[in-house]
Design a protein around this nucleic acid. Structure first.
Lengths: 130, 130, 130, 130
DNA sequence: GTGGTCTAGACCACA
DNA sequence: GTGGTCTAGACCACT
């Protein structure tokens, strides 16, 4: 599945895995009905403890994105695409709201904020050679 | 001082307090020479462990934003405004960075993100009509 | 044979199959001498691993409900009805026991439980008017 | 908190803990706002691994029954009573439905089923010397 | 003190 | 093969 984790990231490993799988579902790389790498295989390929993968999969199940079938593996649910898109939007909206609140407290005009965002975006892109 | 903390936020409480005081200094709500709520009062009003407030105040002192006067309380320093402005920008920038990272994970184009921000801003300005 | 399995049920799939066949024998839907679906056919129609069906059939054989005839298939034994009746009662009793345990955990009085059952029964009988 | 676990029970330990806490919330023994035993204390008193308690508490949090406050402990939520009652009812109703379905398959009249339940209830009570 | 994350490794039931 | 449960023990941030 080509996932990758960053051990130095402040984000917990299991959360990184969750995010990447959500991303793959939204992008269509993982379609409903597809099998997700087994706990052990993924643990082996990422050189991570299986329990950590389990924790990620468990949360994906709780979110309604994945379902486990006993003895068979873990699969993307039919409703996963819709849910994943919604989850992503919710996260973004709440981030936007808190950003707007911060910038209004600092009396930064909206247009300046947008400029700042654009400048930052081009910097981040440049930094990642992307 | 009308601070408020969110127990469910991913940001630690002491960090929330620091940020809010920085914002209040930048906005002029807290001016150099003003006294900051005592640890005990604030802890009581926010229903928080006094140690948490202490930790926040200590860091504000280290940043040069506040100074403790023996037996009198904690006060905003004369150089606080200048320092806080820079710090406020730092907070905004890190908020912007995490927003950009989230939206790139969800493959939301930058222009769509900006549109979303503008829409959200007009909604927040307009009040609770949503 | 119109069996159906529920992947989300706490009951293992092989157990679900056993129970359903027992019930069909008691109700007369499956009579002594009748052939039971072959492992392959049933596995195919239920989209289940053939080993799971085999495990269920093996246990039915051990219980004296089914017998394998070499090269011909699996058949309901002559003594199946009698045995199945007892087993069916066992299943009912264990269902009753777990229900009673749950309701005692929630401190629901026995009389209230019976009322609830009667109400539920009339609803189910009445069809989908709920 | 006087919880107790049975290591020989087929029900996982963490599930036993969840059930007992739900029961205590429904019965009022644990009220909204109350602190639930800390992970470590409970682990020590039950002679169980802290991770197992953690797992139980995590699920209680997911169900909306408990909330964790960083560095402070775990508390019963305000809406816990309502949720707990609903959860219990849901479980009971689905158990009743499957019982009714089983008994109808075995052509057991409703009145006979009720008699069976009453007989079983008095037997269970007697067995537990309760 | 509190909970959160992670590892290493065991044993189990299910398909 | 699959996931589920549990243990023992480590290190971390937060209050």
């Amino acid at each position: 599945m080509n996932l990758n984790v960053n051990f130095n990231d402040k984000l917990p490993i299991y959360q990184q895995i969750i995010n990447q799988i959500i991303f793959r579902i939204v992008s269509g790389e993982l379609a409903p009905g597809d099998e997700i790498s087994s706990v052990r295989k993924l643990a082996e390929s990422l050189v991570i403890n299986p329990n950590t993968i389990s924790k990620a999969y468990y949360q994906l199940e709780m979110m309604g994105l994945a379902e486990k079938r006993r003895g068979m593996g873990t699969y993307v649910t039919t409703s996963a695409v819709e849910i994943a898109r919604g989850l992503g939007t919710d996260i973004i909206l709440s981030s936007i709201d808190s950003l707007l609140q911060e910038s209004s407290t600092l009396r930064i005009p909206l247009d300046d904020l947008v400029l700042l965002i654009r400048k930052r975006a081009s910097k981040l892109k440049g930094g990642l050679h992307d």
